[in-house]
Structure formats: structure tokens, C-alpha cells
Computed example of a mutant assay.
Amino acid sequence: MSAPDTVINRPHPLLLDALTEAGFDATGARFTLMRSGTDSLPFAATTRDGDELVIKVRRAGSRSRYPTAVWASARMREAGIPAARVLWHSREACVEVRCPGQAIEAEPPQPQDLDAAVRAGEVLRRLHTIEVSSFGQLDGQGVGQHSTIQGWFLALPDRRAPSLGGLHLPGLLNRARFVLEAGADRLPVTAPKLLHGDWVGRHLFTDGHHITGVVDLESARGGDPLAELAGWSLREPAPMTEALLAGYFDGPLPAESLLPLVLFRLRIAVSLLHVHVAFDDQDMVRLRAAQIQADLDDLDHGHLTAVPRITPNEHSAGHRRP
């Protein structure tokens, strides 16, 4: 489970200024620090008039991607997706309406969580009907960084990575890079669709019957929908991935989608590993390394699976599936 939120007794002036700029009375507002993200510090805010909001403050040294969230929120809401509504933003902060319901992040997942994951798959399929003009991270006008799927796919992190407690990460990552470069031409030729970019349970809210909120839109990008499915599968327990796929597809995963799905999974695991190295999160580095190793071995032997053999669970860094 995530750590409890922290009540802020003396709010930073930036929080009060953001509320005021968004048109709210900041007098007597209550603030609670929420689970932190990579680029932002999010705070739940309740105004004296009872408005329920989220204020995000940019971390020092991170990029300001709030214009991307504004653009993505508008496109999603036009398509009937309950995306968080952005009320105001600047380079340093962003004010959103707080979504109702609870995040999908029970550990281990309960039947209601699996039902919510099925609903999340249905919402995700709707999201992926929205076309965009290009691939990669989107800017505030919805324009991506790459004109081709290969350019996006092969925009790999730097080769350098340290060895870690018996793991020879440079060798593993060089092997992964070779496979990804060889596999880039095996990706389907498809128009880019709007991707959330960080589609995981904690960014989805449910009231127990429907998905009531989709949050953290700063990572929105253009790409192949299979990449979104792959990203979820690396970070959620296996039953949650099975449930998401059941909601996303009318039947089984199409056979022609299996290889691209595994290639996207490998690509995303490589990127995540570099992030974990940067934050010195050794448990997560080991999990990603194990996932990369498993997918490389499966690609070598032609034994591909829609759900990774190694997934996170509540007991340890990773769980190996038979």
C-alpha cells in the first residue's frame, strides 16, 4: 500500500498563489501532500467553500509539462473519457479538479480491483481511437517528437549503466539494444494514437462500478496502443494485466500483435531501468533487469506471452510466472 498522505500545516506561498490564480479563495484552504511523482509534487487542496482540487508543483530540475496535460485533458474529455480537468497552469504549478473515487492500487488485487481493471481496458480502448499527428512525447499543441514509429521506438536511453550487485547491466542493456534495433522493422505500420503515457492503476480512479477519473496526463504521447498495454503489464500484477486485456479486446490478443507487444515491453523496461538507476532504487532496478532478461530469453526461444513472466507483487520485487 502507498504511504499515508501528509497534512501541510504551513502551506508554501506557491500553493496559495496557485489557488488564487485559478480563481479560488485561498483563505483557510487545507493542503495534504499526496504520493509524489517524478516531475511534480502533488497536493490535495480543499478550499473553505468545499472545492476539492489537486495542485501540482514542478520539482526543481524537471521539465514543465503542464501544457501537455491541458491539451491531452481536453482531447480525452471530448472523447467521453473522465480525464482530470485542468483549471489553471503556469510553468511552475497546475491546478486540477480532484477526481472522485479511489485509485486502483490494492495489494494484492481484490475482485473489485480486477473488475475495475476490466473497465480500465474499455476506457483505454476508447482513448486509443484518438489520432494524433506524430510519435513520442507531445507538446502543448499535441505535436510529438518523431515522425515515424521507428524513430520513437529507437530513441533509447544512453548506453551507460553501472553494474549492480552481481548484475552486469551494460551487457544486458547492450543485448537488449541489439534486439530492439533488429526488431524495429517488425513493428506494425500504424497511425499514431493518443497514449496516456503512464497508464497504471494509481492513475485511474473508480467508484466501484465505473472509471471516474484519469489523472497524471503530463506524459501523454503519440504512439502504438500496444505500447500502453505493455507498460501496464510491467508495473501491475499478472491478474490485473489479464483483466485489462479482457476489457480492451473483444477476444484474445490478436496473434499478429504478440511480437510487437513483447518488443514494446522490452523497450519500456529498458527505459524504466534507467530511471530507477538514476534514483538509486535498487529493488526496482533488479525487477526491471529480471523482466528484460526474461523477455530476451523468450524472444530467443520464440516462447512469447502477453503477460510478462515476471511481474510486481505485494510480497517482493518480482514474481516469476511459470
Results as ranks from 00 to 15, higher is better:
D250R: 09
T206A: 01
A230V: 03
L217R: 13
G165W: 04
L187Q: 01
L259F: 03
G208S: 07
Q137F: 11
F264A: 00
R186I: 00
E256C: 05
H196Q: 04
G201A: 03
L173Y: 05
T241F: 04
A184Q: 04
D139E: 14
E236S: 14
T212Q: 00
A155W: 05
G231P: 00
T241K: 03
T148N: 06
Q150T: 05
A238P: 12
L156T: 03
V200I: 15
G231W: 01
E218F: 09
H203Q: 14
L173H: 01
A161D: 11
F153L: 09
P254T: 08
V200E: 07
S134P: 01
L234Y: 04
K193P: 03
L138F: 07
G201D: 05
S147H: 11
T212H: 02
T241P: 01
N174G: 11
L253F: 02
V189A: 13
L217C: 10
G166L: 14
F135C: 10
G247H: 14
G231H: 10
V214A: 10
S257G: 06
A161P: 07
P188T: 10
L167Y: 14
A161H: 09
D198K: 05
P252C: 07
N174P: 02
A246C: 12
R160I: 12
V132F: 11
L259Q: 06
G247C: 13
L169T: 14
I211Y: 05
N174K: 09
A238K: 06
